[in-house]
Design a protein around this nucleic acid. Structure first.
Length: 532
RNA sequence: GCGCUCGUAGCUCAGCUGGAUAGAGCACUGGUUUGCGGUACCAGCGGUCACAUGUUCGAAUCAUGUCGGGCGCACCA
């Protein structure tokens, strides 16, 4: 809708036209301050330019009016335009807001270490990534969702050690002295029990078998991770194991050419000349590769797989890591502009205004699965999708347990359910509703229709700017419009029943489509008894 | 110390490719249709957009500086 108007104006004025939403709806559907920017070139006052421009739109099929107000140019779309667009949307409900794009994107997110269950910080990155994935796919991008499994390096050894400690303490009943760093949490007990079943008790005491134990255990941990992601409606297309990459190391190092060099018995990447603070070690003196080495091979592999664009979603504490990976990509002969790294920031949880207690049982972290159990997947997804991902966030989960308008997710779903209820109560058939033209609706209904039809540009804007919170914001506003309309205007039994029902169908379509893109179920009815 | 980032209503946050009177929810106060789900709606209260300077017809938005918070500054991942 906006694209069409924008294209029309761009053509007419021979320049890019900024279209914005007027603050007050009485100003019209779209507005542009173009007269201000033209004022300088034309050496005329913005008011006069706006007047002239406005009058040049007389009787245009798209607009019922074009007015100039204080130098702004305000457009009001015609009923014909809106009605035809609504018809199209209802007829192609599966396609509403969809596009075709010939771009292949590799989206890597979560990629949490396979050493323990996901915690609340991981959940944010997971929701953010999955929401982007859904938005992008809806817009027609061919996106692959990938999880990178760090199954090499110290943390894997630590996993083996931690299972042994747990098993020795609880199965062999030994007095165990705990080292400074090891993993803790309930999942280790289960893993140690299963390990004994599979390998026998000896594996708990044999230090030389730590690695064997860990490599077996990480698959179990990945199962836990994958299943808790599935609870959030998040699924990955591909998994890449870090351990599988090192066979390629020599070839990749060759490919880096002068990007790597040897010094002090170690291999370094010359990342400083590519804008990093300093050069970094990639292979230690004892020949063990560093974490960066794995990432270099991994990114090489990504680029060799031939995507048009790459997106990584990382925890914000890794932001210092971006320059060195970009440097490696450049040395490998690829365009680092194709690699986009987005950050997901810390989360602090409150419950009833108090800091949420970390669970000892879980090893002093807040488990994602605990929160999902407490407030549900829909609410958790909504919370993370509704805030900018790259700023720190604090939220109180008690707010999302309420069953009233203070809980936005409830509020939106209730709007959808209200529409479904009305539609089911009316005697008019769906066919009849669809045939009826959306004309002479009156001002309130007209506003609602326009709001509902705005969804496609919201989706596009949210994805392109990577600011997924624009979608939940929109849905909340649309739900508010609906509730207000519902309150003001009776529908069943009125003369306008047919077309008002059609209007509501358009609203429901946008709500449902929008919720789906957030990975949230659009309910057809709300039950009062239901307590999350 | 250096780098990144944030500072908007009592609280949690939107708004930031410069544009019309700075928004929402919560909290607080007061109201609502002889009606389709009141699980809703309306109104009020509440702001020096951290501070300063600059650029501009126009700055919450851009630039510079100051103050304050967070994160990073590994041959850990």
């Amino acid at each position: 809708m906006k694209q069409r108007v924008s294209a029309l104006l761009g053509e007419k004025f021979g320049r890019e036209v900024v279209l914005e939403k007027p603050r007050d709806r009485s100003f019209g559907h779209f507005a542009t301050p173009i007269a201000f920017s033209l004022a300088k070139e034309l050496r005329k006052s913005p008011m006069i330019i706006a007047e002239e421009l406005a009058s040049s739109f007389d009787n245009h099929e798209y607009f019922s009016s074009v007015e100039s107000v204080k130098g702004y140019l305000n457009f009001r779309l015609s009923e014909n335009f809106l009605s035809e667009y609504a018809d199209w949307a209802l007829e192609n409900s599966q396609q509403f807001g969809k596009q075709e794009k010939n771009t292949k994107i590799l989206l890597e997110f979560v990629s949490a270490n396979p050493t323990g269950p996901l915690h609340i910080g991981h959940a944010r990155g997971a929701v953010y990534g999955d929401t982007l994935l859904r938005l992008g796919r809806h817009l027609g991008y061919d996106i692959t969702a990938e999880y990178y499994i760090n199954d090499a390096g110290n943390q894997i050894d630590l996993l083996g050690l931690s299972i042994q400690l747990e098993g020795r303490a609880n199965i062999l009943n030994e007095d165990v002295t705990y080292p400074e760093s090891y993993y803790r949490g309930e999942y280790l007990r289960e893993l140690s029990i299963k390990a004994v079943e599979k390998f026998g008790k000896e594996i708990l005491s044999d230090v030389s078998r730590q690695k064997e134990l860990a490599l077996w255990a990480k698959d179990g941990v990945m199962e836990i991770i994958i299943s808790s992601l599935a609870d959030l409606n998040i699924h990955f297309d591909t998994f890449v194991n870090e351990s599988s990459l090192y066979g390629d190391w020599d070839r990749v190092m060759q490919k880096m050419g002068e990007g790597v060099y040897e010094s002090e018995g170690k291999m370094w990447i010359a990342s400083e000349i590519k804008g990093d603070e300093k050069d970094r070690v990639v292979v230690r003196e004892d020949k063990r590769p560093t974490y960066l080495a794995g990432d270099i091979v991994y990114h090489n592999q990504k680029f060799e797989r031939g995507y048009d664009h790459y997106i990584n979603i990382w925890g914000a504490d890794h932001h210092g890591y971006i320059p060195r990976v970009n440097a490696a990509v450049e040395f490998l002969g690829y365009d680092s502009k194709k690699l986009e790294t987005l950050l997901s920031q810390m989360v602090s949880l409150l419950k009833d205004g108090e800091p949420y207690k970390m669970s000892k049982r879980a090893g002093n972290v807040i488990l994602m699965s605990d929160i999902v159990e407490e407030i549900g997947s829909d609410a958790l997804r909504y919370i993370f999708a509704s805030k900018k991902s790259d700023t720190a966030l604090e939220f109180d989960i008690s707010e999302f347990k309420k069953q009233d308008s203070s809980n936005p997710i409830f509020y939106i779903q209730y709007a959808h359910a209200r529409i479904k209820t009305i539609l089911s109560k009316s005697d008019i058939s769906e066919e009849e509703i669809l045939k009826s033209p959306l004309k002479n609706l009156g001002e309130n209904a007209d506003v609602l229709l326009f709001d509902a039809l705005l969804l496609p540009e919201i989706i596009e804007d949210a994805f392109n700017s990577r600011q997924v919170q624009k979608l939940p914001d929109y849905l909340k506003a649309l739900a508010a419009s609906l509730h207000k309309f519902y309150y003001d205007c009776r529908i069943i039994g009125t003369e306008d029943e047919v077309k008002l029902l059609k209007l509501l169908m358009v609203v429901a379509l946008s709500l449902k489509t929008g919720l789906l893109l957030l990975g949230i179920e659009a309910k057809d009815s709300m039950s009062r008894e239901e307590e999350v």
